[in-house]
């Protein structure tokens, strides 16, 4: 049983001219193993900033507050230490890395996270089986990381990593964006496997309710202007589906 605890988190984005702009304005959120928390909100409300700040992206600075994983101070860790501690971020825009093959990358990541090289005997078989379930052509292993991948392939590759690395807590940053219905189902099945088999806690960031038909959240949090402004169960998502974010945006503007 693991717990990610975010307390009164304030964070800013560092702009190109090195000035900063506050984005997160006091986020409180607790995610336990096996739970699915949907973070929903209008564009620009700070959802992705929350995920990137927890993962340690250098473009964001924490102004105050705390993030702990099983009591350990996440904010004091480097990006790679956070991943090795059991955090995973499925990125909204995974970058292409020329010259690094997916095969080499996956093995390096697995070795780093587990602290030892995966068993030669089962590794290739396990990876191929995971790829098959996500309907990823195994040719991808020979291709460079994300290079020339379609939008759908990139997202499936992120979920492949989720299934292989088996984190304690996974942050999924708009994993549903740019996916057609078939791809959305396949990706959702992957997330549900991580949930059931590895008991991973999931923070599911999304703008739309569509993915919630396939991944069932126990908790729905509405994000607006850098903080959680409303929360509830799955019924809140249905309400948002019908009403949109207007009333939260208007409330934030006051």
């Amino acid at each position: 049983m693991s717990t990610l605890e975010i307390k009164d988190l304030h964070a800013s984005v560092i702009l190109d001219d090195e000035t900063t702009k506050p984005i997160l304005k006091g986020v409180n959120l607790t995610i336990n193993s096996g739970e699915v928390h949907a973070i929903m909100g209008p564009n620009g409300s700070g959802k992705s900033t929350l995920a990137s700040t927890i993962a340690g992206h250098p473009k964001y600075q924490v102004d105050s507050g705390s993030v702990t994983l099983d009591g350990q101070d996440v904010l004091a860790m480097s990006v790679d230490e956070r991943a090795r501690a059991g955090l995973f971020l499925a990125m909204q825009y995974p970058v292409e890395i020329p010259g690094v093959t997916t095969s080499n990358f996956l093995r390096s990541a697995k070795t780093a996270v587990d602290g030892e090289a995966p068993s030669l005997r089962t590794w290739t078989k396990d990876v191929r089986a995971a790829m098959e379930k996500l309907k990823i052509d195994t040719d991808m292993l020979l291709r460079n990381v994300n290079e020339g991948f379609s939008g759908g392939e990139k997202k499936r590759h992120e979920i492949l990593q989720l299934e292989i690395l088996k984190p304690k807590i996974a942050l999924l940053d708009e994993t549903d964006s740019g996916l057609d219905v078939d791809a959305l189902k396949i990706v959702s099945e992957g997330v549900n496997r991580a949930l059931e088999q590895d008991n991973t806690g999931i923070m599911l960031i999304t703008h739309y309710t569509r993915i919630l038909r396939y991944i069932k959240p126990q908790f729905v949090h509405v994000f607006s202007d850098g903080r959680v402004v409303d929360q509830g169960g799955p019924e809140l998502a249905e309400q948002l589906e019908n009403e949109g974010y207007d009333r939260y945006v208007q409330a934030a503007a006051k």
Binding site: V79, R84, F88, S108, A112, L165
Partner: peptide, 11 residues
């Protein structure tokens, strides 16, 4: 590039 790799635990 570094961030992506490090976010997967690679030092």
């Amino acid at each position: 590039h570094l961030y992506y790799l490090m976010s997967r635990g690679i030092p």
